[in-house]
Design a protein around this nucleic acid. Structure first.
Length: 476
RNA sequence: UCCUCCUUAGCUCAGUUGGUUAGAGCAUCUGACUGUUAAUCAGAGGGUCGCCUGUUCAAGUCAGGCAAGGGGAGCCA
């Protein structure tokens, strides 16, 4: 008989039928009741064992053990659940030695401890919920773009392009690092390397996405991205997943519309399809919030916050307006900002948080930044000072999206690249798009783990990716 | 990378002014239990006090160094 997944049993109205269920024991009470979890949902299925069950089997029903149960699914005789399985036979598939098993759910192990046993943390309610939501968001992303006719583009993970300047890169090489081949001048001879040149792990698929957008019209990437920055924060990973749509003929407003609709769609999808997990995560978050001082607690619960984002327009302001708001703010006048505020600064976390969490209390899209603090490919505005950039700032986690309309005018682009000392020769393939049928186009990048953080309410980005890669840590 | 806090049993944490054999709850193990819901009850085992060096008659406790982790900042997505 084929096994039935626990979520389909619990969401169905059928009862009084034979089932086979397989999963892992979460608890075993009164020598009689097993809480069985198979990962298909947060809830456990209660198994009631026959009192005549072999004592040797009963002894092996320990926390973490994998078992198979056949029996009748009936309305529960107890109060805590709707259904239960009256077991007719129990098979131990995999024993779990209690003395050695490090996961003790009743002790409420800390997130930090669970991170050390990341191979087992999927078995907890919290991480089960987080990674089911992560999956749902990934699925929703593909669904959103597919519905709109985007082509999913796989950009290279190994690249030779080092001109984008998005961050420090991990080098990819097969040369022996203790004795690499050298040129007469002592420099390493990368012509002898695997690719015949120096290569790195990608920091962004954007430039390649732009190439494809000039043929397909709308494309998106969704893949791993690598930054060798020594960032030790709850918002940064050395290996993370990024979504980068790129759309031909879009201007900055179209770009903002797309980003806003996209974020609302995937959050809406999670609200619709992950109710049980989000309810649990909301509960978890509110318990965590209770430990904080009153003035640091958020005003909204997790689900309330997500619904608010889905149902309200994002605030759209220019960088210049943002600076003016900061200059006129009570926080500025009371000298509460640690960093100075003036037109031309790259806004600090404290400034972004003020705009999002204190002033507007909703996601904010800031546009038209000074060109000096933005990348070379962003389209220059007519004022000669700003570029058609946009960042989306979200409450609690800051910058979640960075995007722009791209500079499609060859001369302007080359001029800007020269000013920023970016070698135009190596980027010839990129400039070709501006030579042959150039078009206005726009796109953005969204850090996947940041949106997973936002939706699940998890405070540390290391807890929303299965096996986090961070400085000094590549365990598992 | 900078600032700051922390590190004691499998987990979460107490540990007074430096002073005898380092404690609790939970987990684990043994036993009991025919309706449990973080089951309950009885009993038992479990410690290189992060690592190194120093001060002292005496260090979990004081000082210095190192490491790991948390929080904040920078860089960013």
């Amino acid at each position: 008989m084929k096994r039935t997944k626990i979520n389909s049993i619990l969401t169905s109205d059928q009862q009084d039928y034979e089932v086979v269920v397989k999963g892992w024991v979460r608890s075993f009470r009164n020598n009689q009741f097993i809480a069985l979890n198979d990962g298909s949902c947060m809830s456990n299925l209660q198994i009631v064992i026959d009192l005549k069950t072999d004592a040797a089997i009963v002894k092996r029903i320990s926390n973490g053990a994998a078992i198979s149960v056949s029996g009748n699914l009936i309305a529960s005789q107890g109060k805590g659940q709707r259904y239960e399985v009256k077991a007719s036979s129990i098979e131990i598939i995999g024993d779990c030695d209690g003395e050695k098993y490090p996961l003790q759910l009743k002790n409420r192990p800390s997130l930090e401890y669970l991170r050390e046993i990341a191979h087992l943390r999927f078995r907890t309610n919290t991480f089960g919920a987080v990674f089911r939501v992560r999956h749902a968001l990934a699925f929703a992303i593909h669904e959103f773009f597919n519905n709109q006719g985007f082509v999913y583009l796989h950009t290279p993970i190994i690249t030779a392009s080092d001109a984008e300047g998005a961050g420090e890169m991990f080098r990819v090489t097969t040369l022996p690092f203790d004795n690499p081949p050298r040129l007469d001048n002592g420099q390493i001879n990368f012509e002898e390397d695997f690719f015949g040149r120096s290569t790195n792990l990608t920091v962004s698929g954007q430039l390649e996405a732009e190439l494809a957008a000039t043929a397909f019209g709308e494309v998106y990437t969704f893949g791993p991205t690598f930054r060798a920055e020594n960032s030790n924060t709850a918002r940064h990973l050395a290996e993370f997943w990024m979504i980068e749509p790129e759309v031909a003929f879009n201007n900055l407003t179209d770009n903002m519309d797309l980003a806003e609709a996209f974020i609302k769609y995937i959050i809406g999808y999670a609200l619709e399809n992950c109710k049980e997990d989000l309810t649990f995560l909301a509960q978890r978050l509110s318990e965590e919030e209770k430990l904080k001082p009153q003035n640091e607690r958020s005003e909204m619960g997790l689900i309330e916050k997500l619904e608010f984002v889905v149902n309200n327009e994002f605030e759209r302001i220019t960088y210049t307006e943002a600076i003016n708001i900061l200059l006129q703010s009570p926080a500025y006048k009371k000298k509460k900002f640690q960093y100075e505020v003036s037109w031309g600064i790259d806004m600090q976390s404290e400034h972004e948080r003020y705009l999002v969490e204190k002033h507007f209390k909703k996601p904010v899209i800031v546009t038209d930044y000074p060109k000096e603090i933005k990348a070379f490919y962003m389209r220059q505005n007519d004022d000669g000072k700003t570029v058609a950039a946009m960042d989306i700032l979200a409450p609690g986690i800051g910058e979640i999206v960075g995007g722009s309309q791209r500079e499609e005018r060859l001369e302007k682009l080359e001029q800007r690249m020269n000013e920023m000392h970016i070698p135009t020769k190596e980027m010839d393939w990129y400039l070709d798009t501006r030579r042959f049928g150039t078009i206005p186009h726009a796109g953005f990048g969204l850090g996947f783990e940041r949106i997973v953080q936002f939706v699940t309410g998890m405070g540390n980005i290391r807890d929303v990716i299965p096996f986090p890669r961070t400085p000094k840590n590549a365990e598992f």
